[in-house]
Design a protein around this nucleic acid. Sequence first.
DNA 1: TTGAAAGCGATACCAT
DNA 2: ATGGTATCGCTTTCAA
Lengths: 349, 349
Amino acid sequence: MTTARKAPITLHDVAREAGVSLATASRSLNGSARRVNEDYRKRVLAAAAKLNYTPNTSAQAVAKGTTNTVALLVADIADPYFSSIAAGVIRSAEDAGLIVTMAATERSPERELTLVRALRGQRPRVLILAASRVAEEASQDALIAELAAFEAMGGRVVFISRNELDFDSVLVDNYGGARQLAEELIGLGYRRFAALAGDLSLLTAQDRIAGFTDGLAAHGIELPPDRLVRTGFTRDGGHAGMLELAGRGLDDVELVFTVNDVMAVGAMSALRESGREPGVDVGIAGFDDIQTARDVTPALTTVRIPLEEVGRRAIARALLPSPESGEPATPTATEVMLRASTPGPRPGG
Amino acid sequence: MTTARKAPITLHDVAREAGVSLATASRSLNGSARRVNEDYRKRVLAAAAKLNYTPNTSAQAVAKGTTNTVALLVADIADPYFSSIAAGVIRSAEDAGLIVTMAATERSPERELTLVRALRGQRPRVLILAASRVAEEASQDALIAELAAFEAMGGRVVFISRNELDFDSVLVDNYGGARQLAEELIGLGYRRFAALAGDLSLLTAQDRIAGFTDGLAAHGIELPPDRLVRTGFTRDGGHAGMLELAGRGLDDVELVFTVNDVMAVGAMSALRESGREPGVDVGIAGFDDIQTARDVTPALTTVRIPLEEVGRRAIARALLPSPESGEPATPTATEVMLRASTPGPRPGG
DNA sequence: TTGAAAGCGATACCAT
DNA sequence: ATGGTATCGCTTTCAA
């Protein structure tokens, strides 16, 4: 018994069922200006319901020349930072009747470029780039060119946490947040710091380190060069970095700042392996305020970014009439969250 | 200076540029059987490259009658359980040249149904339903009908961790994993248990509780009814559940099993608030093995599900020639991960 | 208002 | 092999 593959109901079927023309059926179901006899309209709606009709979005896209698609590019979906942003994007997009397609760059600029090219085939209305920016990427110019072309044909580009001149963006105050964090930690009594910078080719990492060191400098405190270690931007990077730091001697360090929370979590774990207790023997502070920051013990001091809101703002900006019609991308405010991982330095530090 | 919105390059442009017909251009670029003069082929490719042409996927979809889209439905993108599965799905899909669109049900069966209907408009090749199944949902029949119609018109449906007769699925051995966990905990010396069941209308929760209690029963141990508390399936649910449990008196409880890891995390936090130390005063065990399970202190004993692999398997099954051509959905194996949150009961329990 | 018909961008059949 | 053309499902002029 072969499964007869019955073709989906088309608008044509609905029109026939309702006894009206294709045009009228179209206008009744999707037409903007409702210049259609209420009587006909009802019949079409009834027919559509009866046949369980759903318009073919691809066909609508070809006919209209525009889609209702938002393409979202992240570095890694499983990373809570990106999945939270994605959640915001998807929620807002849906409210606006848009469909979200996602792809992951796996943190490779080349892949990012390839994906942008591939995504172009979808002719999305909006392209949101949330993948973290690498400082000196060779493919940079090619990407810019690609995006410019995309905008030229009517698409909207929105960067997240990355200020690529000429493109719209939702900025995050990485510098200011880190600086504020440094100052509050000093207020807590900390004086001797170390930092795990993650991958310093990432602008985000650079900004946070810069903010942090400037915050320290404002109080006459220096971050010794040998106390700044560069590793991966990931949990394992944090782990490795803390091990490295411990190898160099941790006795005169009161607090370790990691440029993001997942690194902080890895660092806490490494710290314990080296026989020290986070928060007790040495304070730890991260950045992002992912859920886990609240769940680890001790709870992690960090800088909160309203991740979901960032995602929502990306859609909001994209929906603005023109790229420049909103405010000039005020950075999303961050907030220092002091928690148990930074109780203040040991008296006998 | 109005930004002239230059229309995207079409295949037509490429054909003209290469001096060949539309048909030849199409064949050169996308045609399967490459029965096209190598010379022409090159010219078309060159023209396409020169013009930076990308085929309009919507137009291809209308013409071909099929898309390269996979629609993925999850309960909550920000939840690590779902984002890990999504990561697997997206990775595999991309390898197969498929594009993934995502939507979130927010755990509402009605929303799930609505979304499935809306998603149908995309005419996706594959529809993956990862949103957790509710036991007695009213919209159940409507959903089944909708999906059946979807399959009838050539689409493929794959459920994740949910066995909806007549549809393909990637199963997870919730029952077996929980049962195994119970037995291993008994092996550790635990005898007096409590459980946070989350939302028992969720089949996943039911299965895990059933497996756990059966595992206990196999050793003649019972889970007293008043030691089974039902709350939300979320972190906060775990928190509330543990508080509830503590209110009922926790002194004779050696181990609390929560039906998932995020609940366990919430429970650990509540436990501390009630003045007890997880792992020391009372053991905790969860289910899923999300990343955080390894990051909390003490590290959480749990049952590991290879989440990304589950996502990959969903795509793999969907790509099989026919729903039944694979094995009949062998449940994905789970693995008990004994960690510091269950060191064995206190001697003086 | 309504319907006929011309696209939209691509594929694929059918002659040549 | 190649090109002409019907076709896909829908939107949108353009007349009536």
